[in-house]
Write a protein that binds this DNA or RNA. Sequence first.
RNA 1: GCCUCUAUAGCUCAGUGGUAGAGUACAAGUUUCGUAAACUUGGGGUCCCGGGUUCAAUCCCCGGUAGAGGCUCCA
Length: 569
Amino acid sequence: MRLITLHCDYIKFKPLKKALAKAEDLKDKEQKEVKDCLVVLTAVEQGDNDSILKQYLAAVKKTAEEVKARKIVLYPYAHLSSMLAPPDTALEWMVSAQHTLQKEGYEVTRAPFGYYKEFELKCKGHPLSELSKEFRVAEATPNAKPAMKPGKEKKIILDRRNLKPNDHRILGEDLGIFYLSDEIGPGLPLWLPNGETIRHELIEFMREVEEKHGYKYVSTPHITKGTIYEKTGHLPYYAESMYPPIQIEGVNYYLKPMNCPHHHMIFNKIVKSYRDLPLRLAEPGMTYRQELSGVTYGLIRVRAFTQNDSHIYCTPVQLKEEFLKVINLFEEVYKKVGIKDYWFRLSLPDFAGKPDKFTGDPKEWMHACDEIRKAMSASGKKFTEEVGEAAFYGPKIDVQIKNSQGKEETIATSQVDIVIPKRLEMHYIDEKGEKQYPIIIHRAILGSFERFVAYLLEQTSGVLPVWLSPVQVRIINFTDRNVKAAEKVAEHLRKELPKTRIDTDFRNTTVSDKVRDAEVQKVPYIIVIGDKEEEKGTLAVRSRGKKPEFGIKPTEFIKELQRKIELRE
RNA sequence: GCCUCUAUAGCUCAGUGGUAGAGUACAAGUUUCGUAAACUUGGGGUCCCGGGUUCAAUCCCCGGUAGAGGCUCCA
């Protein structure tokens, strides 16, 4: 749909003869005049739908309000488009628009449809008096897929034949971590209760650690106007992996494929001076990327994922130290969560081979690359170098890991950005009172929680540290005689350890069977209550994968468990 | 997105041109056992979806969807 709005002192028009066989019948063919009105020249186009009509009406109303016009003249004007809708449809639309606007309290005149008309108007000529707009239906997908019949949810087949036993897709299924539903869509994982427990523990853990290291937590919306991505320069690089925009009142909004611009706007709001730096903003931010359908894969490549994201804004002098702190943070965190096999990769630009991929001043690139290299040497960590793997806005360190099939992949990243601050006019005032651009470190220690949990499962085969285990203690009765005593033990432990995840298995089956189940589920502590325990008031505790220990005093067990969970051992 | 392979019970899988089975899980009953699988019985399937061939399709053919491996891309 296309339109031109003209704020006029008057318009006069008179139908002369039919231009279309299907022109509407008219009783009154006299000249009409409307004074002080908003004339809306309109062309309805092929494929226009309700959403387009809504946008059209919203735009007309907005303009009418802005110019304070109470009278509106809807004037069909076919010459605006070469892809006109069929006349029947177009007329229907014009009438519908007229009724809607009348209901809203406007005095609406509709010029006859399908006639050659003589007309005369006087446009007021102020800045808002002439506007044009165009509304388009989102591009129809060329190979549109036939709609599935509604019915039973189609299950997603996990073909285990080619997968290793520690593949996170198998563990994810067996341990109740996540689920991919065809009804929800490929690459859109649903976290099951056990998985969400792990994810939540990781988020909490990161927040604790990061706040300890001076990060400030923020929270930002999932959509944003597209203009910001034009400014940052992301659009040309990212358009393909971004979801198509949602149009609201004629403005394009995108699901965010990264959290950066949101954080940068917070920087612009709160940073004034070099004294405010470094500023470290952090957020477990959910992002959306339209990955190719052939590449989505378990929790490792998905279309909606939560980044353990942070942006560190600093001065060029602070860069090396801040970067070093990030590198050290990787080690601190990975040790706690149980990731052992990983290494660093310094990803550099390739100005000779792919100059188009990297933007900005080569001198600043060199400075950034040098500072990172120095930071890496200072850290004492081993790293490889890869030319051409840098981001478009700066060099980066990637944390590399091998998946269950031995293939190298990136789990996390820390990127230096020397380009975006200029594009978004981010600055601070330095010691000399001069405006300076900050350097940004984009870093995600855990990468995304989705991918991280996947690799965590693969590296540990599901044997997680106690603090991350979805079920930490399972209490089993030895015979039916012991159910009540076992319940009491559960109650007691829950009271003493309110944040601990304790469950019970009182099924009518053998102890071995229930122990086996708990072992398969990788429960760290299995407590069996039988006649002996009931009599002595002790616990039979079986630590994951070990032989049971008998005669443990509850107080001892509680103390030990509390320590392990608090210290995240 | 492209190439190859795959889709049968909640899960893991057999099987057949004449509409289906096992193990496990689930439910009921029996059993009351000292640390990785007790016994019996039962319910449970539009054999992924749409079309074609055929007297007849879960099986053969075509198309779609989803998954796996690879390419490419990424956290």
